[in-house]
């Protein structure tokens, strides 16, 4: 392979990794507060639809992107009452949210299949995009990719350098102690759930606004579930999430190239790659489980009795 092909492939890797990165960071925020949210797939696809619809009607992709984030928050807010007030099982509630979200997005989106909408196109960053190798790979993308570069460090800072982040992590590690320290655990968990939903919505919107530029049913194709797996792979750390998201971006970009180049493998076998890789990645992460930052009270509800 020539250098240009490799660079083009790596640039495509960053692009197809971006929606997964947003969703993974959202799930990290949620799980750090102690709430497992398996609704990522449903929330993402709602974000993708709302982003597309708002862009189509307003003509403003930036507005559409933010709207998708807000809808992501609103959708995960369904998870909140069920798990935070009514003590519902977090696994089942998340699954229900996925079934609900995918159904709702496909239902409302039927009218938009095959219609155009404005989206984001690449804007080379002045100066940085001139860099050899790194320029075309990282700095010749649409603005949303640049936004995604800022989120992991900001999320890390929030979690580790602010009192709200500390409170949120306490709610996920040891809720009883957090309550004893006078923290409102349920409020911190709400923050994690709804804040996480915002990023899941953004991840979905990236798909429809910058990646495919159109709406089809089942647009997310399991990316939400891959994000859930990546949180484990990332040991709940935003930095490692970047690495994981680009790993999947790479395999997806590679698979598209192979299909386009008319490889001998049937497309259904190539399409299996990301899902198989998810299983492989989970197996690999189990090797060093001791060094992970898994919240101790992940998935455990806080009883309401006073």
């Amino acid at each position: 392979m020539s250098t240009e092909i490799v660079i083009a492939l790596l640039a495509a890797t960053v692009q197809s990794g971006t929606p997964i990165l947003f969703a993974t960071l959202g799930e990290i925020l949620s799980e750090k507060s102690g709430v497992l949210n398996l609704g990522v797939e449903g929330v993402m696809i709602l974000g993708a639809l709302v982003g597309f619809v708002v862009a189509r009607h307003s003509g403003n992709p930036l507005l559409a992107f933010v709207a998708a984030g807000l809808v992501g928050s609103a959708a995960t807010a369904v998870h909140g009452p069920v798990c935070l007030w009514f003590q519902g099982n977090q696994v089942v509630s998340g699954l229900a949210l996925t079934i609900f979200g995918v159904g709702l997005a496909n239902y409302l989106g039927t009218a938009y299949i095959g219609t155009p909408a404005p989206g984001f196109s690449p804007v080379p960053l002045p100066g940085l995009s001139e860099l050899p190798v790194l320029g075309p790979i990282f700095f010749n993308h649409d603005p949303l990719v640049y936004v995604s570069y800022l989120v992991p460090p900001l999320l890390w800072l929030f979690l580790h350098a602010t009192r709200y982040g500390l409170g949120l992590r306490a709610a996920g590690e040891y809720p009883a102690a957090a309550v004893a320290a006078g923290l409102d655990v349920v409020a911190y968990r709400w923050l994690g759930v709804v804040g996480g939903g915002f990023f899941m919505g953004l991840g979905g919107a990236y798909l429809s606004l910058a990646y495919t530029h159109l709406w089809t049913s089942n647009l997310t194709a399991g990316r939400g579930w891959i994000a859930v797996a990546l949180v484990i792979f990332a040991f709940w750390r935003p930095g490692r999430a970047v690495f994981g998201a680009y790993l999947f971006g790479g395999i997806m970009a590679l698979q598209l190239r192979l299909q386009a180049s008319g490889a001998q493998l049937p497309s259904s076998i190539l399409l299996m790659l990301p899902y198989t890789l998810t299983v492989v990645v989970l197996v690999l992460s189990s090797w060093r489980k001791g060094s992970s930052d898994e919240p101790a009270a992940l998935g455990v509800n806080v009883a309401p009795v006073d």
């Binding site: 089942v92 229900a96 609900f100 159904g103 709702l104």
Partner: peptide, 14 residues
């Protein structure tokens, strides 16, 4: 649209 069933199923479960 057929996806309507998913909305009801998800809502029932929730």
């Amino acid at each position: 649209p057929a996806a309507f069933g998913g909305i009801i199923e998800g809502a029932i479960l929730l």
